[in-house]
Write a protein that binds this DNA or RNA. Structure first.
Length: 314
RNA sequence: GCCCAGGUAGCUCAGUUGGUAGAGCAGCGGACUGAAAAUCCGCGUGUCGCUGGUUCAACUCCGGCCCUGGGCA
């Protein structure tokens, strides 16, 4: 089946931004970011949001669409990104979905539906409070009653998924298992041509990450974090869970040197990159481009261009 | 030069009254359906500094050597 959108994915610091912009330029496309943290306004340096120069004059969507104190979600991402992708297609241009949040990419492409209820009903907070007072095991017992399949699938220690499963059941009357089953029957929304980026050797990626964190510090990540704190962005909100922000905020508030926090950022970024790779490796359709130690950008561009033209995308 | 302490996993260290070793962190692999840069699961990866000796058996005991840190000169 002929693809209709291009997806550029890969771990953090693998060069997605530059490749996406260059390809958009070459094929007259527009970039749709798929990044759970670049959606927040005022979080530019730490999320490595494309700078004005880096966009190469190409339209970039799904950046700066939320306030850091809002809690963004996959559901909201899909609701906002789908009309944008459709519009790009309607204008006869190429949508280039680029980002490191695998969950967002998958949901955008797959067409899955979300349980129809308000995310901010307060139910989740109630359930979390119960976890603290009664213990996770109590909620798990409850889940076993209403949705044994989900209970079997979700690990006893996985608080987030246990809470989520109960949340879906309590607010819709339908189990998450049932919901997922129905959701899987929905036909995919798009047919992606996927290019995944990585480095041939893991340490080469680490070097990239380290260097990038150093650059972030030079560009004033500390000030960016202080600004968010001064603006009263709660430390427990989603935006402040972003790597780079939570570590520096902790260092600042605990009176540790920020350089100490920066080292933590490097470590957490490496670990994050590994989880991203696990996610993207699952996609057997993805075309991997593996950088050498010294990235050869024109080689990546040639590789991608051939795929795009060869697939009939353009 | 002498005295003391120590050399065990990538790092910090535990341990074996002699039967080829285990924690934390790091690392590796995996999962993931409205928090996903989140969350969760699995895996020990090793010339126990080197070299002789004692012993059925040495990482462990003994000798010598090397290295590191501290002290005395």
């Amino acid at each position: 089946m002929k693809p209709d959108i291009l997806v550029i994915c890969g771990p953090t610091a693998s060069g997605k931004t530059a490749l996406a912009a260059a390809l958009a330029r070459r094929f007259g496309g527009e970039v749709v970011s798929a990044d759970s943290m670049q959606v927040y306004r005022g979080m530019d340096i730490g999320t490595a949001k494309p700078t004005r120069d880096e966009t190469l004059g190409v339209p970039h969507h799904m950046l700066d669409v939320a306030d850091p104190s809002e809690n963004y979600s996959v559901a909201r991402y899909v609701a906002e990104a789908v009309p944008i992708v459709d519009d790009i297609l309607a204008r006869g241009k190429l949508p280039i979905v680029a980002g490191g949040t695998g969950l967002y990419i998958d949901h955008l492409v797959a067409g899955r539906q979300f349980a129809p209820f308000e995310a901010d009903s307060g139910l989740r907070e109630e359930l979390q409070a119960r976890v603290r007072s009664e213990g996770l095991a109590a909620l798990r017992l409850e889940l076993e009653q209403v949705d044994p399949e989900a209970a079997a699938r979700i690990h006893p220690n996985d608080e987030k998924r246990t809470v989520r499963a109960l949340e879906v059941y309590l607010s819709t009357g339908k189990t998450i298992t049932q919901h997922d089953r129905e959701s899987r029957e929905v036909p995919p929304r798009y047919t992606p041509l996927t290019i995944a980026l990585n480095f041939q050797e893991r340490p080469w990626l680490w070097e990239r990450i380290d260097r990038r964190v150093d650059e972030m510090m030079e560009r004033g990540l500390e000030q960016e974090v202080r600004r968010l704190l001064a603006d009263g962005v709660p430390r427990d909100c989603t935006a402040m869970q972003a790597i780079g922000y939570k570590e520096l905020a902790a260092a600042i508030l605990e009176g540790r040197p920020v350089s100490n926090g920066a080292e933590e950022v490097k470590l957490r970024s490496r670990q994050y990159a590994k989880r991203q790779l696990t996610w993207f490796r699952r996609d057997r359709q993805a075309h991997w481009f593996q950088w050498e130690k010294i990235p050869d950008f024109s080689a990546a561009l040639a590789f991608s261009t051939e795929l795009v033209t060869g697939s009939g995308l353009q």
